[in-house]
Design a protein around this nucleic acid. Structure first.
Lengths: 240, 240
DNA sequence: CGTCCCGTTGATCCCTATCAAATGTAGTGG
DNA sequence: CCACTACATTTGATAGGGATCAACGGGACG
């Protein structure tokens, strides 16, 4: 089991691992398993026994729930540096969702038991975990608020903005989303259908707000998109 | 400042406070402030500085967010034994929502600083907090899934079932929800309008599934309601 | 006994899901 | 290098679930 050299540098800037002494970090790294994922591979599946928790080093994952009726929704995306699969830490037996790579990814995995060790060894780690979960709870509440009160157009606009925010690259034309994404997936993020998403994106493409190809989206005008996300701009923004 | 006698018994069965030595519990109780709330009173308001966290001893609260446009949504209800207002523990400066009594209530409040003391004194306390927040995150994801994929009727049915589950009393006619609740509030829980809720409840009343008066709801047939929550029963459930 | 809320019920409209094809685009294997 | 296949996207037509607009009725409380 000769692990590749895992550097402390991987973890020590990762929020929850901050404030841990180097010795602890080293010991933690020794128990880590490296987890390589090709696009489409799952780190784990909904309902599986929550045996491990993970940190994403590189790439991008989506967290997916399937409803009893077989529909999918995307709960969130996992970015490099994020912890995921903390089910056991929340005292869940099984993972409540599947986590799937949307591009080639690299993660570290630890046996769930290691969690308790970490928490008891460092109150800061526990505090970091609470903060992380708390942030996700905030995000979830935001989405609930949006799903409850906003129209599809605003929700889709907001979803794009979040993607730009969390993982996009500046290009000549604008901010390009770093990983391949389909209309179907955007629909699963916003509680609508791929048809409606397609129509919206087509309209926005006509207005020069975005560019898009197969599984690629570039946001040209973040401002106009933010405008749309706020509210329906009254067709005539006042001759002013 | 002669506090009423606060018994350890109030806390020691409260999940997060379990596993704390009696001496610690006593010391914790000494720093608690008693917080009495009349119906309609707020423990704190959205946007206020998160100076305290709370435990509800008796009564019932609702956690409410207002959107930029002034619409309200009910994030969750707080039941006796629940912790609320943990914003500071999640490193939020301000409370992200208001918390308002829907009936006369009694709570304990601690200065936010006490949180860190608790976490560092007891890893179990930290673990309990993570579990609590994790459970709420699960619940939030369930709601997102429902808002994304289900129809209004199912969502309202499910909301009623949850209320029955968490705070109802068996009466002659069925399970009566313990606190006053309006159609408007149910609408705010389910992302719809009071009109639609009223229509649904009227229909269900006709079918003998519920009884309702002003701000009062009794569920007579939990089974039929669960049926409705699952899916639209095809008008003819098959002559079987 | 009047006023304030809360609840009920019509009528109408419109956003968006659904149904149905056609077109485009990558990848594959011959 | 091209035909073939699988998957993504686009676009039209249609229908329907709920929101919205508008009144009215009824119980509680001062």
């Amino acid at each position: 089991m000769s692990q590749p050299q895992l550097s402390r540098a991987l973890l020590q800037n990762l929020g929850m691992f901050r404030n841990l002494p180097d010795a602890d970090l080293d010991s933690i790294l020794q128990h880590a398993r490296v987890c390589r994922l090709q696009e489409g591979d799952a780190a784990f599946l909904q309902g599986e026994d929550a045996a491990e928790f993970f940190v994403l080093l590189s790439g991008r994952l989506k967290v997916v729930q399937v409803t009893p009726e077989g529909e999918q929704i995307i709960v969130r995306h996992v970015n490099p540096g994020d912890i995921f699969g903390m089910a056991k830490a929340m005292s869940r037996r099984q993972y409540p969702a599947s986590t799937v790579a949307v591009q080639e990814s690299l993660a570290l995995a630890w046996p769930a038991a290691a969690w308790d060790t970490l928490v008891s060894r460092s109150p800061q780690f526990a505090a970091g975990a609470i903060q992380t979960v708390g942030q996700r709870l905030q995000d979830a509440h935001s989405r609930i608020r949006e799903l409850s009160t906003e129209e599809v157009e605003q929700r889709v606009a907001r979803a794009l903005l979040r993607l730009v925010e969390s993982s996009s690259t500046q290009t000549l034309e604008g901010q390009e989303i770093d990983f391949p994404i389909t209309r179907q997936e955007i629909a699963e993020m916003t509680g609508t259908t791929l048809h409606t998403v397609s129509r919206l994106l087509s309209a926005w493409k006509n207005d020069g707000i975005i560019l898009s190809g197969r599984r690629r989206i570039t946001v040209c005008s973040v401002d106009k998109l933010a405008q749309l996300a706020r509210a329906e701009p009254p067709a005539t923004p006042n001759a002013n």
